[in-house]
Amino acid sequence: QLHTPTNLLLLSLASSDFSVGLLLVFQIVLIDGCWLYGDIMCTVYQYLAYVITSASIGTMVLISVDRYVAICYPLHYSTKITQGRVKICIFLCWICSWIFQSLILIDNVKQPGRYNSCVGECAFVISYIAGYADLAFSFIIPMIIIIGLYIRLFMVAMSQAGAMRSHIAAVTLRHSVRAKKSQVKATKTLGLVVLVFLLCMCPYYCVALTGEDNSMSASSAAFVICLFFFNSCLNPIIYAFFYPWFRKSIKLIFTLQI
């Protein structure tokens, strides 16, 4: 019962977020002040961090599209959103993330450790053009898509609630209460998704693009980077555990009732 197109997207999101968690083990080493694994491993670590985070953001956009079609075009959902198409979209999301970040980080990949000023440092530098491209495709465009789709979802939910109230006069009061609850829930979901994404991503991109990262202390830089990664920690809560059926499935699995 869990093998659905939506859950394939959640699986992709879970895979990317879990991988970010593994990479944070190396980030703890960076916080400690010295990189012990050489220039090549430093480049691999930074490269994977960029690719996986980019894939996570791309999957968030795909989930927004999936919800948009499910709510706005429910009768066509089963024909438009199939497992085959979702698998292709997930594959393209990861491939595009890999290609895009390869272009962004090409100088660092070609010559590992070129920006290190001393032994034990793991420095990664990208040009302003690459930085603005990363800002646009990893932050601005995904945010515009997510906000636009969720606003559309909210409007459709309100219109459906209004149609329900007008057609069922006998239970107007009850449906009015339900409609208000639905609107509040939709508003909270929209606000939470946007707020979490902004809070986690904005500090990183602001520091990186203003060039103030060179004047920051090690602890401040580590906090900004960890906050950037923390978005992946919150994604499972927002996109998975808000589903009652998902929580029930997890409970059945971990209590050995399957």
Score class of each variant (00 low, 15 high):
149 L>P: 05
99 I>V: 13
169 A>Y: 02
22 L>S: 03
164 M>L: 14
134 D>M: 07
168 I>P: 03
125 V>P: 07
77 Y>H: 15
157 A>G: 02
128 Y>N: 08
36 L>H: 12
222 A>P: 05
22 L>C: 14
12 S>K: 07
39 D>Q: 08
225 I>S: 06
229 F>S: 15
66 D>R: 00
122 C>T: 08
122 C>R: 07
57 I>M: 09
235 N>R: 11
188 K>T: 14
105 L>F: 15
181 K>S: 12
7 N>L: 05
152 R>T: 04
103 L>T: 09
126 I>F: 00
255 T>N: 01
6 T>C: 05
71 I>Y: 10
106 I>N: 08
134 D>Q: 02
227 L>H: 01
208 A>G: 06
9 L>K: 00
198 L>R: 06
253 I>C: 10
157 A>P: 00
48 L>G: 00
99 I>R: 01
163 A>M: 13
147 I>H: 05
234 L>M: 10
202 C>V: 15
130 A>V: 01
123 A>T: 13
212 E>S: 12
64 S>Q: 01
128 Y>P: 02
116 N>C: 08
39 D>C: 06
24 L>M: 15
9 L>D: 00
11 L>G: 02
245 W>V: 11
14 A>T: 09
107 D>N: 14
149 L>D: 01
130 A>H: 14
10 L>V: 00
69 V>C: 08
146 I>N: 10
179 A>N: 05
206 C>T: 13
100 F>R: 07
253 I>N: 02
34 C>K: 10
230 F>I: 15
109 V>W: 12
141 I>Q: 01
176 S>M: 07
74 P>Q: 02
242 F>G: 03
2 L>R: 06
24 L>G: 06
136 A>P: 03
65 V>I: 15
37 Y>H: 12
250 I>V: 15
95 I>G: 01
116 N>P: 03
112 P>H: 11
16 S>C: 04
18 F>N: 07
122 C>D: 00
109 V>C: 04
28 I>M: 08
161 A>F: 11
85 R>C: 04
109 V>P: 07
221 A>W: 14
185 K>D: 09
46 Q>P: 05
257 Q>M: 09
35 W>P: 11
195 L>F: 15
114 R>L: 13
17 D>V: 12
241 F>Y: 14
74 P>W: 05
148 G>R: 03
10 L>D: 02
133 A>M: 13
44 V>M: 06
46 Q>C: 13
35 W>G: 08
203 P>F: 02
30 L>Q: 06
82 T>K: 11
95 I>L: 15
59 T>A: 08
66 D>Y: 14
33 G>Y: 09
111 Q>H: 13
14 A>W: 09
188 K>A: 10
148 G>S: 15
228 F>N: 11
64 S>P: 03
119 V>F: 10
2 L>G: 14
42 C>F: 07
109 V>N: 04
91 F>K: 04
115 Y>M: 09
57 I>L: 01
160 Q>E: 13
122 C>S: 09
230 F>L: 09
210 T>V: 06
252 L>H: 09
80 K>N: 13
27 Q>D: 14
239 Y>S: 01
136 A>K: 04
29 V>D: 03
55 A>Y: 04
26 F>Q: 03
248 K>Q: 13
38 G>E: 06
59 T>D: 04
239 Y>G: 01
61 V>R: 04
172 T>R: 14
158 M>V: 01
237 I>S: 12
168 I>Q: 10
27 Q>N: 10
4 T>R: 03
122 C>P: 01
52 I>M: 00
23 L>I: 12
101 Q>T: 05
58 G>A: 04
19 S>Q: 07
